[in-house]
Design a protein around this nucleic acid. Structure first.
Lengths: 187, 187
DNA sequence: CGTATCATGTAAGCCGTTACATGATTGT
DNA sequence: ACAATCATGTAACGGCTTACATGATACG
């Protein structure tokens, strides 16, 4: 369902496009939101056209077919936006690792969490950069999504920092085997 | 990969269990983290046993087989925890809707966002409740994951509120800012 | 004796990934 | 002429969902 909506949405928001163009739009605008390859996009375009939600607006060189959204397609996407009920993801690899983290020695877990925090700090920086340049058309289109991404990744970063401190604090109170572990748990 | 790690992790952290038990553990402990049905779990158990990462520890009535993790299995899961690199989800239906939201009239979009905010506020309340009762063994095991869930859902709730105001505020006001870090998951 | 729960599986079908495959046009 | 890029597909395979299927035991 979501792939179709992503395709319809890109056609509705940014205008007619070929499968090739859409592949690039997915990559440029939707990369962190709904990832898709051309091998998924082309068949989906054919299905959407067969169902009348999009139509071939132009044919160009090299067999290029430019698709445009139809009124039916536009209605499908707006209805979906209004009526789809929010559902938190039920599969989250990061959260799974968080859940299983107590299986590691605290010192090891802290290291993992620090790497995680650093990773997400970097991601947040990247997205904030994008926000700076956000006056180009495709970015303006995704302004709210960008903001959501920043907030979600910031939340993960903060969690990782909290959890690392939580674990480090826990180890200090317990008798320690190695003198280095207090060092690695600092911060 | 993650399904196996979830199974191995549950066996490592909460002790030996049958497929039936594991189905319930997934449901009770891992519901918001890594969802799985028995139809996925049983075949995975057979594969894991074939590879020597788990073994049948006991056979009971009704064909019940209790599995225990092996040293090889324990190593596999701890190695995964240490070496898996963090990767933000590349498919997020909520973020996709956020991205496409400008396709709606602002008034409609605001309604959607308010429903979203209410939904996540409720979810956060549920999880905070769990945190209150969190001294039972399975919950203690997932304490960090619970905290992560609360923070992530709070971030979404706050985003939805921000976006709703942003849209309601309309075209004249341009200045808005994102809090660098919100005191979302306070205890 | 019947119902709920325990307990384990299989099958069809969809969605997504990776790799394979082909050819046209543009630019150097 | 050659490479890069434009452009569209198909196929094999794996993971997940839903539904089908079966039978044993406990308990009231």
């Amino acid at each position: 369902m979501s792939l179709r909506m992503a395709v319809l949405g890109l056609l509705a928001g940014l205008g007619p496009a070929s499968g090739y163009d859409l592949t690039q739009r997915f990559d440029a605008s939707l990369a962190f939101v709904w990832y898709a390859q051309h091998s998924q996009i082309y068949p989906e375009l054919n299905r959407l056209a067969a169902e009348g939600l999009i139509e071939v607006a132009q044919e160009g060189p090299r067999g290029r077919k430019t698709y445009a959204i139809t009124p039916a397609g536009r209605e499908a996407v707006t209805r979906w936006l209004q009526h789809a009920e929010p559902a938190p993801t039920r599969r989250n690899e990061g959260a799974l690792r968080a859940f299983l983290l107590p299986l590691l020695d605290p010192a090891e877990a802290v290291k993992v969490l620090q790497r995680e925090a650093a990773f997400y700090a970097e991601r947040v920086r990247e997205l904030q950069n994008l926000r700076g340049l956000a006056d180009s058309a495709p970015h303006r289109f995704g302004r709210h999504a960008l903001e959501l991404g920043i907030r979600q990744m910031t939340a993960i970063r903060e969690w990782a920092e909290w959890a690392a401190q939580d674990l480090a604090g826990g180890t200090e109170e317990v008798a320690e085997k190695t003198p280095e572990s207090s060092e690695s748990a600092e911060r």
